[in-house]
């Protein structure tokens, strides 16, 4: 474990908590893409199946359980509890166009052709594009509540910090995982446009308004 990965995980944890609190406190999921949250639930389910087979550490196990639980709780809040506030009209990204390529790519490029490994690889590829429905929704509505942009900033930072962790691990432990690294870079690059808007606007107290 290193400081980059720890802060990355904490940023990830913070993002999930911000989102849960926003939906719970405002009793509304307006502006939130339920499709991205479904993709995240799929990402954690397919990645953390090894919860039952390999024990890495108490930290690792606890975080996996929290990410699994919170992702399903978020999907439940959006599609069941606060269904009336879910914005169907703007959450229209076709997620099958993200899932299918991830499945095909995971079958073609992986570390080992075993069920657990293929599912892990699928989860890595899917996570790199899972935020697209949310970013697409923000571009369609042309704006995002500041709490939603804080959520996106924390979520985008987590994988960016993981890139620093991978550099650190390569330098210190000569350990690297190209699949995770390439997908992580793609994932972080997808946020760049948002990061620019967040830093130039939201941090100056303005609302996140995308040029129409």
């Amino acid at each position: 474990m290193n400081i980059f990965r720890l802060t990355g995980d904490l940023a990830h944890l913070l993002a999930i908590i911000i989102l849960l609190l926003k939906i719970w406190k405002t009793r509304s999921c307006a502006g939130i893409s339920g499709k991205s949250q479904i993709l995240f639930a799929i990402v954690y389910t397919t990645r953390y199946l090894d919860l039952v087979t390999t024990y890495v550490s108490a930290y690792n196990t606890l975080m996996k359980i929290f990410f699994l639980g919170s992702s399903f709780a978020t999907v439940y809040l959006i599609y069941v509890k606060f269904k009336a506030t879910y914005d169907h009209n703007h959450d229209t990204f076709r997620i099958e166009f993200l899932i299918l390529p991830a499945v095909i790519l995971a079958l073609l490029i992986n570390h080992a052709f075993t069920p657990l490994e293929i599912l892990w690889t699928f989860s890595i590829y899917l996570e790199s594009v899972a935020i697209l429905p949310q970013l697409f929704m923000v571009s369609k509505t042309g704006e995002a509540e500041s709490i939603t942009s804080h959520y996106l900033f924390a979520l985008g930072s987590y994988r960016g910090l993981y890139i620093l962790n991978w550099i650190y691990r390569y330098a210190m432990e000569s350990h690297y995982d190209l699949i995770a690294i390439v997908a992580g870079i793609v994932q972080t690059v997808l946020y760049c446009d948002f990061f620019y808007l967040y830093i130039t606007k939201v941090l100056k107290g303005k609302k996140l308004q995308l040029p129409a």
Partner: peptide
């Protein structure tokens, strides 16, 4: 036999 790399990251 390719040892399955243990994924120790989240």
């Amino acid at each position: 036999y390719v040892a399955r790399p243990v994924h120790d990251e989240l």
